[in-house]
């Protein structure tokens, strides 16, 4: 194993890791936002909104994220959507993650015992008051961990944007393989950095989970 080479290219990988982190953070924010909106749609009393929510989830969970990225990035210009690779990466992955997160958030909400809603409504609370005061605080505790699983998956999915030439970890590894012919070292380096990112994110989720359990 060529440690000397690894040491030499290491700073470039670190820089690429920051891009992966930035991608992950932005994707997670977009995903959570869309997950909340998707849940809102799926639980709406309007059939049209429910149908839109259901379609969103089934389309974006039912096709490969890579194809979604390709359609957005390569196919987008054809229908007037001009995005640079990074933007396309964040938006494409964010929309994809949002579909999974919709199911996670909705799952946590509908798993709360229906007696809770009945008790709140019986006191005279409105649908929204019930959601906000009674259902959400309880479901929040149930959704942190599964959302952590979604976030773990989306961090790994950021590797896909190498295919549209975003200079993140995987793309960087590939580029250095092209010039050094050392795939083992280069992918290993990338892999270790992914592991660190995912580990830190996982700790964050565990911390947050503990925090919501106590309060």
């Amino acid at each position: 194993m060529d440690f000397e080479l690894m040491q030499k290219v290491y700073p470039f990988f670190l820089e690429a890791a920051w891009v992966t982190i930035l991608l992950s953070v932005l994707t997670a924010i977009l995903g959570l936002t869309l997950g909340a909106l998707g849940t809102f749609a799926r639980l709406s009393r309007f059939v049209v909104l429910r149908a839109i929510g259901a379609a969103y989830v089934s389309v974006f969970r039912g096709t490969p994220a890579l194809i979604q990225l390709f359609i957005l990035y390569f196919g987008g210009p054809q229908i007037g959507i001009q995005l640079d690779a990074f933007q396309a990466g964040v938006i494409g992955l964010g929309i994809n993650a949002g579909a999974y997160m919709t199911e996670t958030i909705r799952g946590a909400i509908i798993s709360i015992d229906k007696g809770q809603t009945e008790a709140a409504r019986t006191l005279g609370l409105s649908r929204w008051q019930t959601m906000y005061k009674v259902i959400l605080p309880q479901s929040l505790r149930l959704m942190v961990r599964p959302l952590g699983v979604n976030i773990n998956a989306l961090i790994k999915a950021t590797a896909l944007v190498a295919a549209i030439s975003v200079v993140e970890l995987t793309y960087t590894a590939q580029r250095y393989i092209g010039s050094t012919y050392k795939p083992f070292e280069m992918f290993l380096l990338a892999g270790v950095l992914y592991m660190i990112i995912i580990y830190v994110a996982g700790r964050g989720v565990t911390w947050l989970d503990r925090k919501v359990q106590i309060t």
Binding site: G115, A120, G124, Q138
Partner: peptide, 30 residues
């Protein structure tokens, strides 16, 4: 519904609230 109290077989207390908060929530909000 504010004028009609209901008590259920399975209590349906709000588990994330203390007894005090269970009692005060609706009067404060409504």
């Amino acid at each position: 519904r504010q004028q009609v109290g209901m008590v259920f077989q399975h209590f349906n207390l709000f588990p994330h609230m203390t007894a005090r908060e269970n009692v005060t929530m609706a009067p404060i909000m409504l």
